[in-house]
Design a protein around this nucleic acid. Structure first.
Lengths: 214, 214
DNA sequence: CCATTTCTTGGTCGCATGACCAAGATTCTA
DNA sequence: TAGAATCTTGGTCATGCGACCAAGAAATGG
């Protein structure tokens, strides 16, 4: 008998099932980050986890189902990390600073996860299940966009398209895993400071030339 | 007999050979941009080009050889476009502005090419031939880094790590193809203006608080 | 105009993959 | 502990892949 793996997990999973799923997802993360999307297969994931390949098919409907779970797990992990890091910032400038620095630190301490996520986001281009993955990305853009818009409404940020700035910032953030992989010795704290400083300069309302007519 | 496809093309290619190679590369670009890296195969490229699949194997040593040619062609195209666009800028600020706006316009008028390039850069993670592809990226980072460093030496830019800023800017640039794909109706000219303005604010030497001690 | 080189096709080969299945091992429950 | 539900294995299957090859078509040039 097959367990109910569908999108709607109406029933609680057994202890063993939950543990196995976590183990498989974790192995998938490591294989994805080490070998890339193209070379990631059930056989390799199973070998790395020390289990049979068929077991993955038992716990997940198909490859797409597994990858969606991987994305969901990593996103949840990152969301928790960032929420905790942003905390109760007094200003939007401060919240943005903490968001950026928190993300850099997350990349540093979860290198395999962010590399795997990047592989999945890039590797599913055009596929039908890519829709769900892409919607996760849209959600990230939307959250940043919302923060920027509120910051503008509170007069902390200058006038720019929040959507544009969110996409631009997210691009800078997504470049970080690759850079840390290419140059493992990078001074992460300094990188975080530089990045938050850079975007602070880019979005803050200038104190000079408050030129408004009328 | 097989043509000499190796990395060193010591001999000139025949007219037919050059035309075929261009046709195959162009078809590969379109398939990559439409279906993504994972679903791109010789069979699909050949079908899209209206030729036999074996013909690709005749003109290219293997898949890796073909993809390297695709990357080289797109890079050459982009290099030419950007060089022309930057032209003879008087200042580094102006050169950076033209680089950014030129890139946005390039993405707009070569959507398939930039999407294909993104698929190749992301899709070869961990592979051995990925080395050559990644070195192309390192070259892009290096060129931007060099421009930023010179701008600093001329006193036009504030103090930051050129390497860091190059990676950050390149990330923002690489986010553009995906955004144009996700929102085809984007006002490209406005996007270009916003992006160049944003990075101008981020890198220029502040006229306020010229705080230097001594 | 014929001989040689270049170009192209269609087919075959071995390989890796994801999905599936039957049967056995393990765990749970009453 | 006995029966039932769950978990796991190892195997088979069809599919799609890149590479390769033999043979013929087309272009080339002396």
């Amino acid at each position: 008998m097959r367990p109910r793996n569908g999108a709607i997990d109406q029933k609680a999973r057994s202890f063993i099932e939950a543990a196995r799923r976590d183990q498989i997802v974790q192995a998938a993360v490591e294989i994805l980050s080490e070998l890339g999307y193209a070379k990631t297969s059930f056989a390799r994931i199973a070998e790395h986890a020390g289990i049979s390949a068929g077991l993955i098919s038992y716990h997940f409907d198909n490859k797409s189902d597994l990858f969606q779970q991987v994305v969901a797990d990593i996103n949840a992990l990152m969301d928790g990390w960032l929420t905790e890091h942003i905390g109760d910032a007094d200003t939007y400038r401060e919240a943005l600073r903490r968001l950026i620095e928190g993300f850099v630190l997350f990349c540093d301490s979860h290198r395999a996860h962010v590399l795997a996520l990047g592989q999945l986001l890039a590797g599913v281009g055009g596929q039908e299940n890519g829709e769900l993955v892409r919607s996760q990305r849209e959600q990230s853009v939307g959250q940043i966009e919302q923060m920027l818009r509120e910051g503008q409404e509170h007069g902390e940020f200058r006038d720019f398209s929040p959507r544009f700035m969110a996409v631009t910032l997210l691009g800078s953030l997504e470049a970080i895993p690759g850079e840390l992989f290419a140059r493992p010795g990078t001074d992460v704290a300094a990188y975080a400071k530089e990045l938050s400083m850079t975007y602070d300069l880019a979005v803050r309302r200038s104190r000079l030339r408050r030129i408004t007519r009328g």
